[in-house]
C-alpha cells in the first residue's frame, strides 16, 4: 500500500513543485518588500500567496481526478493494475494520496502565510502597520477565538475531500457501467452533480431534524458535520471500490 501511495504521490509532483515555487516566490516578495519597505512588492507577495493558497488545494484535488481518469483510459492502466494488490487497495491508495496532497498544500500555505504575516508586521511599512493593527485587534478582543476559524477550515477541507470522492465515483462509473454509452462523460458529470446535490440535501435534512438554525451552523460546527461528511466519503469509496472490483476491465 505504501508503494502504491508513493507512486500516486509521484504522479502529481510537477504540480506540487509549482505550488511550492509560488509559495517560495511569495515569501521572498513579502520578506524582500518588508526589508526594502516597498508596499507594492509586499502586496504582490500577499496577492500570490492568497490566490495560490486558495486554488492549490482545489486544483490538487481536481488533478487527482484527471490522473485517475487517465490511469483508467490509457495504456498506463496496466502499470497500475498489474501489481499484486486488490482493486480496493489500488483505489484506496489513490484516495489517500489525493487527500494527503490537498492536506500538504493547505498546511504549506497556512504555515507560509502565518510566518510571512508575522514577519511583515515587524517592519515599518503601511502593510506592516495594517498587520500590526490586525494582530493588536485580535489581541485586544478577548472573545476572538481561533477555534471556530480552524474548525471551519477543517470542515471546508473535508467537504472538498467529499467532492473529490464524488468525482472518483463518477469517473469509476464512466469507465465501467457507462463504458458502452456514447454519453458516458456527460452522464458521469451529471451524476457528479446529482450525488453532490443529494449529499447536501441529506445534510440539510439532518440538520433540520436536529433543529439547528443557519446562523447556528456557521457559529457552531459540530462533530455531526465532520462525521456526516466523513461517512459520505466512506460510502463513496465503498461504492467506487465495489463497482471497480466487479466491473472494471482495462
Amino acid at each position: 500500500m505504501g508503494n502504491l501511495i508513493k507512486y500516486e504521490w509521484r504522479k502529481q509532483r510537477t504540480s506540487r513543485l509549482l505550488i511550492l515555487a509560488s509559495l517560495i516566490i511569495s515569501i521572498i516578495l513579502m520578506i524582500g518588500g518588508s526589508i526594502s519597505e516597498s508596499d507594492v512588492v509586499i502586496g504582490f507577495g500577499v496577492l500570490i500567496i492568497s490566490i495560490a493558497g486558495m486554488f492549490s488545494v482545489f486544483y490538487l484535488g481536481i488533478e487527482s481526478l484527471i490522473v485517475y481518469n487517465r490511469d483508467l483510459r490509457t495504456k498506463q492502466s496496466y502499470m497500475l493494475f498489474m501489481v499484486p494488490h486488490s482493486t480496493w487497495e489500488i483505489l484506496g491508495a489513490k484516495f489517500i494520496s489525493a487527500i494527503l496532497q490537498m492536506f500538504f498544500a493547505a498546511v504549506a500555505f497556512l504555515i507560509g502565510m502565518a510566518a510571512c504575516f508575522s514577519v511583515i508586521a515587524v517592519y515599518e511599512t503601511s502593510i506592516g502597520e495594517l498587520m500590526r493593527a490586525i494582530w493588536e485587534f485580535i489581541g485586544r478582543t478577548p472573545e476572538f477565538n481561533w477555534i471556530p476559524l480552524l474548525q471551519a477550515l477543517l470542515l471546508l477541507f473535508i467537504v472538498w475531500a467529499t467532492v473529490i470522492m464524488t468525482g472518483f465515483l463518477a469517473v469509476t462509473l464512466s469507465r465501467t457501467v457507462l463504458l458502452k454509452s456514447k454519453f458516458a462523460g456527460l452522464i458521469s458529470v451529471v451524476l457528479f452533480f446529482v450525488i453532490s446535490g443529494v449529499t447536501e440535501r441529506i445534510h440539510i435534512f439532518l440538520i433540520n431534524l436536529r433543529n439547528v438554525t443557519a446562523q447556528g451552523i456557521l457559529s457552531q460546527i459540530s462533530f455531526f458535520d465532520y462525521a456526516f461528511y466523513i461517512l459520505v466519503c466512506m460510502i463513496l469509496f465503498f461504492a467506487s471500490g465495489w463497482i471497480a472490483d466487479r466491473k472494471l476491465s482495462i
Binding site: K11, K75, Y78
Partner: peptide, 11 residues
Amino acid sequence: YMPTEAFFYDF
C-alpha cells in the same frame, strides 16, 4: 504480463 503497447509512466 507484457502488453503490446507502451505502458510505462511518462515520468
